[in-house]
């Protein structure tokens, strides 16, 4: 079984974000593996294991030839990666990104399953996987909180408002996984050492035949204004001395909640 996992490399979410002169997110410096994608990587490794053989290929689009996030996922056990990095990609929107990633899936070849997260941590448009599925003419099984593969078919539990739906399709498909679908492993020391020598196929937008459909021009949208959101005022704060709950009761009564 050949599983491709979308792996976004993002600025450390713990560091406050900033906009650059073009009003896009600053993505300079070291990038890390988006934690949301670590679930897809783990899921892929487990599915390949359960299938009794196969391979996990990572695909990523990132500025400045960034590989640190990919190395983390390779250290977890993925076999190889395709990295699309090209100044021409700056300013790409979700559709442009999906076009690039779909071409990567084709480049990977013989793919049974494409995994992605339900949304990325920095952009969180949450549409790239469905767009990619449409470009690849594949079904998209989204919001999976449980995944099983058997006999060329995939079955997931799809999160819904009221509970979950059991959804099935024949491979190949695109699946998006929610956080917590599996417990991502920590890379072992051996894994980290091995990752240094795993192949990363570096390509440009032109290599994928997409030069004029991505980047600023391809996005066809523009930020016309940026303002600070009004902040909410803090109210009363008290130290609990054993009677703090009475304060809450008083507040609830004032609101006529009780």
């Amino acid at each position: 079984m050949h599983v491709v996992v979308c792996v976004k490399q993002i600025p450390d979410p713990a560091v406050p974000g900033a906009l650059d002169a073009y009003n896009t997110l600053q993505r300079e410096g070291k990038l890390i593996l988006d934690e949301s994608d670590s679930y897809g990587v783990e899921m892929a490794l487990q599915l390949v294991d359960a299938a009794g053989g196969g391979e996990v290929t990572l695909i990523s689009m990132a500025p400045n030839g960034e590989v640190s996030g990919l190395r983390t996922a390779l250290a977890m056990g993925a076999a190889k990666a395709i990295l699309v990095s090209d100044p021409a990609l700056a300013g790409s929107d979700a559709l442009g990104t999906a076009k690039v990633l779909a071409k990567c899936v084709e480049r990977a070849g013989g793919v049974d399953l494409v995994l992605a997260a339900t949304e990325s941590s920095d952009g969180y448009t949450g549409t790239v996987p469905a767009q990619m599925a449409e470009l690849l003419s594949m079904p998209a099984l989204t919001f999976a909180k449980h995944v099983e593969v058997a006999d060329g078919k995939i079955k997931i539990q799809r999160q819904t408002e009221a509970g979950y739906d059991v959804v099935e399709a024949s491979l190949p498909v695109v699946v998006t996984v929610t956080a917590g679908v599996v417990e991502p492993r920590y890379p072992s020391f051996k894994g980290i050492m091995a990752a240094k020598n795993k192949p990363v196929d570096a390509v440009t937008a032109a290599d994928l035949g997409l030069a004029d459909q991505v980047g600023w021009a391809g996005a066809r949208q523009e930020i016309t204004g940026v303002t600070q959101a009004p902040a909410r005022q803090a109210g009363e704060k008290i130290e609990d001395d054993g009677t703090g709950f009475e304060k809450i009761v008083g507040y609830l009564e004032k609101l006529k909640v009780i």
């Binding site: 929107d93 559709l95 969180y124 949450g126 819904t160």
Partner: peptide, 20 residues
């Protein structure tokens, strides 16, 4: 959940960006 599925596939069919 379903809104995102629909807008994603539609954006490719119509070749339009999505504003999310």
């Amino acid at each position: 959940y379903d809104g995102r599925d629909a807008i994603g596939r539609l954006s490719v069919k119509l070749d339009r960006p999505v504003l999310t």
